[in-house]
Design a protein around this nucleic acid. Sequence first.
DNA 1: CAAATATATATAAGTATTTTATATATACAA
DNA 2: TTGTATATATAAAATACTTATATATATTTG
Lengths: 116, 116
Amino acid sequence: MENNGNNEYVRGTIKTIVLNLLAERGRMYGYEITHEVKDRTDGEITLTFGALYPVLHKLEQEGYLETESEAVDGRLRKYYSLTTQGSETARTKTHDLARFVEAVKLLLNPPGLATD
Amino acid sequence: MENNGNNEYVRGTIKTIVLNLLAERGRMYGYEITHEVKDRTDGEITLTFGALYPVLHKLEQEGYLETESEAVDGRLRKYYSLTTQGSETARTKTHDLARFVEAVKLLLNPPGLATD
DNA sequence: CAAATATATATAAGTATTTTATATATACAA
DNA sequence: TTGTATATATAAAATACTTATATATATTTG
């Protein structure tokens, strides 16, 4: 029963995480995204389907993602990939999130604070 | 007109940011908190009052904060400080946020990605 | 063969959180 | 006296997320 509740902090970052992963991997399907995120963060970040799918659909509506469905082993897979506009947004948002992360570190580890 | 919109990522971190600042500074008032956050992050993170005060009130309700009002220059100031329970929560949440931040970095800067 | 588990997408109801707008009040500068 | 800075506060609206649920196939386990 690892850690939970940490997902509190995922708020607001899901879109960017998805865009960034797709920028890196070319195309992915929903199920794959949740597993990749969990794997790469050692279970620290878990995207639930209830949160992920609405985000994917919204990004598609907004023109950042395009989809192609494929049947693999009889099961349907919906692959998502970035549009041109999506690539640009991915770059901007990833950069912004990286900046935010650095800013948070300034608040958590102020210069000159003893790490006792 | 610096950057805005980055506040998108503040979602979910406000509580922890406030608790952590109070752990560090002993006591602060709302207005001071927003300024401290803005200063220390070079304007990157801006806590709006509409977001901050509800959080302060909630943390007080939950028993994490206690308050004392003081009149300074005729103006009222409400100082917030951590309760014993609040100190413990501050420690836990700060630690969790630091872990989350590291996890996000794993997603944004995967090992072996050329920074072209 | 039946049941459980893993794979795979999807939505809806409820909750929580945040933005935006607004109200109140003092002090000081133009 | 108008605007800006200081200072707290709330309410309405929008957004985002959690939890629960539905559907369906493939594979493993008993």
